[in-house]
Design a protein around this nucleic acid. Structure first.
Length: 167
DNA sequence: AACAGGATGCAA
DNA sequence: TGCATCCTGTTT
């Protein structure tokens, strides 16, 4: 069963936590989400939406359930999913995926994940609530989630907004 | 532990 | 114009 508007229309840290163990489907690929991070808006200096609406960050202010793909360091793409009601900037960065489709590897890291799946900015702004080939559904039950500070950032490193599947 | 690769966005 | 960046593989 595909996760719906009610799932994504909540605080991004709660959604990021609950996405651990869920199943991400992207075309021919599918995998269990193993690592996420939550990003917000004005109250989050590490977020692209910290300085308000820009051409890049506008999607984070929009309705929940849409993809936000950004390009970074000249060679990597990162996949996020927008959460919270329209007007509230927020997104969940998908940082780890255990593939259920060949070659069954663990894609640890947001850049590697997008490179393997073929996700680029062409896939920015897709509505995961209605797209038939790009969505999130129920995955494994009763997962144990480890909560840590976010990594790879210099600002707001104190917020415990990183969530990792404990094996 | 350090850095280069390399494009984009935003500050100056 | 310049520089920092929600990264990663490769080299000290």
């Amino acid at each position: 069963m595909k996760l719906d508007h009610n799932f994504f229309n909540r605080n991004c840290a709660v959604v990021a936590h609950d996405l651990i163990g869920k199943k991400l489907v992207f075309g021919e690929h599918a995998g269990i989400i193993t690592e996420t991070e939550a990003y917000r808006g004005a109250d989050d200096p590490a977020s692209h939406a910290h300085r308000g609406i820009t051409p890049r960050s506008a999607i984070m202010f929009g309705p929940p359930g849409k993809s936000y793909v950004y390009f970074i360091y000249g060679m990597y793409y990162c996949l996020n999913i927008v959460t919270e009601p329209e007007g509230e900037a927020s997104a969940v960065l998908i940082r780890g995926l255990k593939l259920l489709t060949p070659p069954l590897t663990h894609l640890n890291g947001p850049g590697k994940l997008c490179r393997h799946l073929g996700i680029t900015t062409r896939h920015n702004g897709i509505d995961l609530l209605s797209d038939p080939t790009f969505y999130v559904s129920e995955g494994i039950q009763d997962v144990d989630v480890n909560i840590t500070p976010r990594i790879g950032i210099k600002k707001a490193t104190e917020k415990p907004w990183r969530f990792v599947l404990t094996l």
